[in-house]
Write a protein that binds this DNA or RNA. Structure first.
Lengths: 67, 67
DNA sequence: TAAAAAAGTAAAGAGTTCTTTACTTTTATA
DNA sequence: TATAAAAGTAAAGAACTCTTTACTTTTTTA
């Protein structure tokens, strides 16, 4: 799954540390999500989307693979 | 976090087993999510919402608590 | 280009999501 | 009401999410 977290974070002029503080996770969590190491939990996906004022679908791109 | 999975599943006339098969998880996973034992992963939330033809926000209700 | 700031990464550990197996309880129907 | 179908639940284990600590690499700026 792809996401636009880095792009949206940079649009707000925040570095990973400030963004991590704002959404109350570690900086490593932000880095891991931005780099696609893993997806956030649904809860964290909501927190991130809410922070950006976007829907989850606008931030996280679920490419539905067929077979 | 609340969700409307049970309601939407029943609207389609599916029991937990048929629904679980359709979204490729175990019946226990469906039961656990419907009963709020845990939230689905973001990936599974997308699969469920897609199955219902809804957005994640329409299926999963993230009540943002301000302490 | 040297120093500082920002970001990448790794490993160990805690907690969460999901599976399988199996049994119990509830709900629907003959 | 007896049986069948549907749903609840529990436990052990695998895989994933997130934390802390700590170090390395990349990018920015003085």
């Amino acid at each position: 799954m792809e996401n636009r977290v880095e792009e949206m974070r940079k649009n707000l002029g925040l570095n990973q540390e400030a963004f991590a503080r704002a959404i109350k996770v570690s900086r490593q969590t932000v880095s891991s999500i931005e780099n696609g190491k893993y997806n956030p939990s649904l809860e964290l996906a909501f927190v991130i989307a809410d922070f950006f004022g976007k829907s989850i679908e606008e931030v996280f791109i679920h490419e539905k693979r067929k077979e």
